[in-house]
Design a protein around this nucleic acid. Sequence first.
DNA 1: TTGCTCCTCACGTCACGTGAGGTGGC
DNA 2: TTGCTCCTCACGTCACGTGAGGTGGC
Lengths: 148, 148
Amino acid sequence: VTADTATRPLRIGEVAERIGTTPRTIRYYEEIGLLPGGGGREKGKHRLYTETDVERLQQLTRLRDLLGVSLDELKQIVEAQEARDALRRQWHETDSEAERLRIVEEALPHVETQLRLVRGRLAELEKLESELEERRRRLLQRRRELRD
Amino acid sequence: VTADTATRPLRIGEVAERIGTTPRTIRYYEEIGLLPGGGGREKGKHRLYTETDVERLQQLTRLRDLLGVSLDELKQIVEAQEARDALRRQWHETDSEAERLRIVEEALPHVETQLRLVRGRLAELEKLESELEERRRRLLQRRRELRD
DNA sequence: TTGCTCCTCACGTCACGTGAGGTGGC
DNA sequence: TTGCTCCTCACGTCACGTGAGGTGGC
């Protein structure tokens, strides 16, 4: 029982604007199979999206931008994510604690891989930022010296 | 009096490997005018690079990767950088304090623009990272609950 | 009914990758 | 002299951008 059934379906332009992309990009992702797309859509008719669709696409574009992965890699990440979701469902369906531990341990590597990617990027950024800070600090110092 | 005259000139493959790129990329940057390139090189002969060349190219590729700018924007950044270098030289050549203050104030906006770009990226990354941390925290929490 | 947004081709573009065929320097 | 790296075209590729010409729904 999500809010999707209650909210108005969105058109591709609205979706694109909300997540900061273009209709062409969304169509392209559908083209290469990154988005499910034309489930029960007649050819030539408008694509319609739910709030859940928007959130999922939002996640995709953020990963693409922040990690700089290719759409092929992104597809693999999506598949890993779906694998984790499947594990989560399994977790809820079992009562065995041994089984649950196995499931959690199977899910952890996926998360850790993502974390490793992000941390690498962050470290590079912090290095650059500190260098720029140093430059600014020196400039402000010079400015102060001029005032005296 | 840099170390360049003392060190052995590098070939394009060595340069590419050291900064983690490819010869093709370096040639392409020369092609579009991002790198000076064929100063006094005869057509068909090998390109040669100094340590200073390597450092400058390193800075370019880092900016490209970390800020995700286009090569056209990168060219503009390079030009801004060169403008700042010129201002620095002017700063050293004058004795007037008023003049020096003007020069410093002219240089600051360039630095601040670069900082703004970097900060934006950093904020996005931190948001993503905290979300991933939260996910990991929840998984570890679950694991602890299983142990009890 | 009028506009606006959507649709499907299909070619263009940016930043290189990838051979093809040939030459340079330790 | 033998290899390895380099050279210059020149076409290929990835992730879309950009019209062209036409249709859908408030």
